[in-house]
Structures are given as structure tokens and as C-alpha cells.
């Protein structure tokens, strides 16, 4: 874990650029899907204690909808696309003209639609990243869950659990048309992947 606290400022900038390129393409994909402008925030790269990671999406117990997929290939890692429930409802209304019925929770159709949106967005994130780094990266079949943020995110931290109590993550948020349709991408590369990403981008690492 010590290696991560020693990252130079410019190395963090490289990782920010990774988030920027990936999420930029994903935002474009979402914008096409919705036929509306989508803005994105400046990516954040941070080494966070496990406890604090869920705070980024509203706390351990905040109920969120998350699409999770495992990145396989030369630079493996975990990827989450996380949105709040109200944003999910708005997405469903806009994309599928399915009015959401609050009483019965989410139907299989609705969850499947959200999973597919997550799949399209994370897919474009990863493919642009693979183009940029020339590393082979393939997403696993995505899986969707509606649950507490803490329970969901801890699943992506297991590879870090073996070596410390914090994880390095690349986070990007986007906003649709200044409305509060807010989404988060978390890319959590496996600890071993950083060297490969840096090398691929021409950064010298010892």
C-alpha cells in the first residue's frame, strides 16, 4: 500500500486524465441516448479509507442503484456506475417512457433497462480507455443491484483488502442538463494494474 501514498502529482494527473477520457466518452454516449446535453465534473483521484468511499455517494446506508462489472484483461479492476433512485426513475421515464410505480419497487424490466444503460456507459468508458492506453480491457457481463452503498462498494474493494485499509479510485460525476440527474463512475483498478497503466501511457515507474 505504501506505493500508493508515494504517487507523484503528475502520476495522479495521468490517472485523472484516464478518468476524463473514459467518462467523457460515457457522457457523450449518455447524451446521445437521452438526446440532451450532459455535463461532467473534473475527475477526482483519491486514496480513500474503505469507510469514506461510500460517503462519496451519500453514506454507507444510502440506497443506490449500482451497475457493477469486472474489468478483465491486461489492467484488471472493478468498475461501478452508481446513481441515486430519483435519477434512476428519471432515466427510466425519459428513455423508456415507463412511468415508475413507487409502490411495487422495481420490475425486472426496469432493472434490466438500468443495467443496460450502465452497460452502455461503462462500455464506452472502457473502450475509450483501452484505445488510449492500447491495453486489452474487456468488461464482464454487468450486474445490477439496488442496495446500500456500503454493501455494494465493499465488493469492489476486496483486492485492496488483502494489502491495506484504503483503495485508490478514479471518480467522475456527470450531470444532465443542469438537472440533478447525477451519476458516478468509480474505476478501481487492481493494485497491480497501476504500473501497467502508467507504462502504457509512457510514464516511467521504477
Amino acid at each position: 500500500m505504501a506505493q500508493f501514498s508515494k504517487f507523484e502529482a503528475f502520476e495522479l494527473d495521468v490517472l485523472k486524465e484516464v478518468g476524463n477520457i473514459g467518462a467523457g466518452n460515457a457522457a457523450t454516449a449518455l447524451s446521445r441516448l437521452l438526446n440532451k446535453p450532459v455535463d461532467m465534473g473534473v475527475p477526482k483521484v483519491s486514496l480513500l479509507p474503505f469507510e469514506e468511499i461510500a460517503d462519496r455517494v451519500g453514506g454507507m446506508e444510502q440506497v443506490v442503484i449500482a451497475v457493477f462489472l469486472r474489468v478483465e484483461g491486461e489492467a484488471p479492476g472493478n468498475m461501478f456506475f452508481i446513481i441515486q433512485e430519483d435519477a434512476a426513475k428519471r432515466l427510466l421515464t425519459q428513455l423508456l417512457s415507463l412511468p415508475h410505480d413507487d409502490e411495487n419497487g422495481y420490475s425486472e424490466m426496469e432493472l434490466s433497462a438500468l443495467c443496460e444503460i450502465g452497460n452502455i456507459l461503462t462500455g464506452s468508458y472502457l473502450s475509450s480507455l483501452a484505445d488510449f492506453t492500447h491495453l486489452a480491457m474487456a468488461p464482464s457481463v454487468p450486474s445490477v443491484a439496488l442496495d446500500m452503498a456500503g454493501a455494494i462498494l465493499s465488493y469492489g474493494l476486496l483486492q485492496y483488502g488483502e494489502m491495506g485499509d484504503s483503495a485508490l479510485l478514479i471518480e467522475t460525476t456527470f450531470l444532465e442538463d443542469c438537472q440533478d440527474l447525477e451519476g458516478h463512475f468509480f474505476l478501481i483498478p487492481d493494485p497491480e494494474s497501476f504500473t501497467k497503466i502508467f507504462r502504457a501511457l509512457g510514464v516511467n515507474v521504477e
Binding site: F68, S140, S143, A145, A151, Y155
Partner: peptide
Amino acid sequence: AQMFAFSGQSDSMRI
């Protein structure tokens, strides 16, 4: 719990 279900269950996914 098994938060996410995957077809190809590797051991680390069955944590």
C-alpha cells in the same frame, strides 16, 4: 451476501 450474480463464478467472487 453475494451482492452480484455472475455466471462465471471465480473464487474471489464467492467471497
